[in-house]
Amino acid sequence: MTARSSYLPEGLPIPVPEADGLSAPHWAGLRQNTLRIQCCKKCSTWQWGPEWICHACHSFEIDWKTVEPSGTIYSWTRVWHPTHTVLNDRGPYIVVVVELPHAGSVRVIGNLLGDAQQPVTIGAKVVGVFEQHDGTEPAYALLHWKVAD
């Protein structure tokens, strides 16, 4: 078995910030092995995905806070049918929705590392694993998850 350098093969669309730069701090943070999530400076409401305004108080003063990458599995799917050319020979893989208790229980989407056939339990504790893609143009990083020991 060949060791993979990334969970999913290179060649999937590379995430880049919008032209208006809304999500740029998030992607820059992942490149530095940090998870950065929006938090309102005025009312401290956490917010994800990113938006220009706080949905709770309508302040435009929104901070990007570094969050400990740990949480619980909120939902998941094991994908079997490839829907992109580079996934054709990948075999099944697991997508998880992870709830972040350190960030007001907002959720992020990622992959669950390890055996793709592993049983997945909603509520299981997971910890983040940063995956750097240094060799692509542009370079980028993703945040994956593995079941906590």
């Binding site: 999913l8 999937l12 669309p13 590379i14 995430p15 880049v16 910030p17 919008e18 032209a19 999500s23 992607w27 995905g49 799917t77 994908v79 049918h81 829907t83 992109h84 996934l87 893989y93 997508v95 992020v108 989407i109 990622g110 992959n111 980028y140 993703l142 994956h144």
Partner: peptide, 21 residues
């Protein structure tokens, strides 16, 4: 596409790209 942005950038690179997924 070579790149993805906006809401889809938060799921597509993780292989959650179609409605089924």
């Amino acid at each position: 596409a070579k790149t993805v942005t906006g809401e889809m950038s938060l799921s597509v690179p993780y292989g959650a790209m179609t409605p089924a997924q």
